[in-house]
């Protein structure tokens, strides 16, 4: 069972977002983590490998700092990592998926995993696009995955419930919270990870030099108006509850 996990390095969830002098998102001084949904994907890959054997390859498109996220996955137990440096290419989800799919097409895989969305741009489309380019089926927002005999049955979250979806492998699955509890890398794992292969590629290596262009263009960034604190309703509980009900109806007009 060969498994490829697509992962992304993102800002820490606690990161404060500011804009730089050029009006773009300031990236300096922000602590970076592996996208939490991708951690579920890495964990699931490791569990499948522990059950059925095989190899887990983690792959990311990003600048050299993304090596840290890949190293973390190696320390958790993945076997090898690939980092594709997009250079100056402008990336959107189309472009990123094009690069990932090209890199993955050179690997052997039964299963491709990724988080169902990244917590930074939250776009939830790269893994699906990769599946479409590679012409393999995708099952999104998976909370349980059972693999047997060249097939997988995935439980996926739908509004107001869940559904069981069966697909033949190879296939792409995207992880939702609840799929598993990701392990922490052990000290031994961290030491071992230093010796595991980290392959660095450029778009030229993939034959994509000058071939990748974003479809979507960001026009401008802004920070939302902070919400203002409203009023604290004074008084005993009964009095305050009565006043709140009245304000919701007469002032806020929301009920």
């Amino acid at each position: 069972m060969n498994i490829v996990v697509c992962l992304k390095q993102t800002f820490d969830t606690e990161a404060k977002i500011t804009l730089d002098a050029g009006g773009k998102i300031e990236r300096k001084g922000v602590s970076l983590i592996m996208n939490p949904y991708d951690e579920f994907a890495v964990e699931e890959a490791l569990r499948l490998k522990e059950k059925d054997g095989g190899e887990v390859t983690v792959i990311s498109v990003g600048e050299s700092s993304a090596q840290d996220a890949l190293r973390q996955a190696l320390a958790m137990g993945a076997d090898k990592a690939i980092l594709v440096d997009p250079g100056e290419a402008e990336l959107d989800e189309y472009a990123t998926a094009t690069i990932l799919a090209k890199a993955i097409s050179g690997l052997e895989y039964d299963i491709i995993l990724g988080g169902f969305r990244a917590i930074d741009d939250g776009s939830a489309q790269v893994a699906g696009r990769v599946a479409e380019i590679l012409n393999v089926p995708v099952v999104n927002v998976v909370t349980k995955l059972e693999v047997e005999g060249g097939k997988a049955v995935a439980t996926r979250e739908i509004e107001g419930g869940s559904e069981l979806v069966e697909v033949a492998l190879p296939a792409v699955f995207t992880a939702q919270k609840g799929l598993n509890e990701p392990r922490y890398p052990s000290m031994k794992g961290i030491m071992k990870a230093k010796k595991k292969p980290m392959q660095k590629m450029t778009l030229g290596d993939l034959g994509l030099e000058g071939q990748v262009a974003a479809k979507v263009k960001a026009l401008s960034y802004s920070l939302p108006e902070p919400r203002k604190a409203g009023k604290i309703i004074p008084g005993e509980a009964a009095e305050a509850a009565r006043e709140l009900a009245k304000l919701l109806r007469e002032e806020a007009k929301v009920i």
């Binding site: 189309y94 776009s123 939830a124 489309q125 699906g128 696009r129 479409e132 927002v141």
Partner: peptide, 23 residues
């Protein structure tokens, strides 16, 4: 931007090789 809308949009966008802005 529902579970279904998100799922479908990504696949259709890639099939048509176009851009998609989500949520």
């Amino acid at each position: 931007c529902t579970v279904t809308g998100r799922d479908l949009a990504a696949q259709v966008a890639q099939r048509l090789e176009t851009g998609l802005m989500t949520d």
